[in-house]
Design a protein around this nucleic acid. Sequence first.
DNA 1: CCTTAATCCTGGAAGC
DNA 2: TGCTTCCAGGATTAAG
Length: 293
Amino acid sequence: MPELPEVDTLRRSLRRKLVGRHITTVIVRRRDVVHGCVTPTALLRGCHVTRIDRHGKQLAICGSAQDGSKRFSNPCICIHLGMSGSMRLTPGDRSPDKASRIRRLTFAPHTHVVWRLDDGSTLAYHDPRRFGGVWTFPNIATLRKQRWHRLGPDALRVTPTQLHHALGRTSRPIKPALLDQTLVAGLGNIYVDELLFACGIHPLTISCSLGVNNIQLLIDHLRPLLRRAIRNGGSTLRDHADVNGQAGRFQQQHQVYGHAGQPCQACDRPLRSIIVSGRTTVYCESCQQTPSD
DNA sequence: CCTTAATCCTGGAAGC
DNA sequence: TGCTTCCAGGATTAAG
């Protein structure tokens, strides 16, 4: 499932391959996955791509265009991959025959939006389960103000003070609290389970009972965990892949997620699986205790 | 405040 | 083999 490391893998690839390119055509194959203005212009047709941003699990692609009266516009689209979304870049056909280049434009199943670039390559947004979507904004400031303002600080940048504040005001267990994007943005089921295992914190620990030491422990493990995942191209369980179709490798390093019943890497006892606020949660009963601090 | 459940949706896996 | 059923999950919403 695309969480922060998977989305950041995508951001890095797009930054490399998309920034500076010109978008010549936009094809919307399913209108209902696009929210806000659905015109090609709002979806960056005629724009140069200026930057790619990310907050939590959401991605922003910003463009810049000049109209007839030389006025600039800087539209911006926000992409949320939901559960099964992915982006794929297909290199352009360099053959001189224009007709064959156009005929080559075939669509994989569940392709909802396609952008054609000035070098003939295409960027395609797929999402079989359609929990994700594309949101259009007149500029990135509006995106931040209207959409990203509801999210908590990004999980890669959250400070101990911010985390302490966020967790201090909820009596929910730590597991659903860390999944709550309004408290911290970017974590999903995989990385919360991995984080709590790394910290030795029981998933049912009441958030506001965590002391400063444990907040620091969470921070100390959070960034290295996410960075390691990003370095490995994220976790591929089923759908996630980079823009070139390559799967991530971090799932090979999961300590608990997907390993229920298997021996704990640290103590050899079988890992337990429970449901916490509707989410499958895997942890080690002996390594993860409720801290008294 | 909190929780649970339902909702959206599809494909893969398990079960008969 | 082929059908049905279940399950996965991010976010939101409603109900308890």
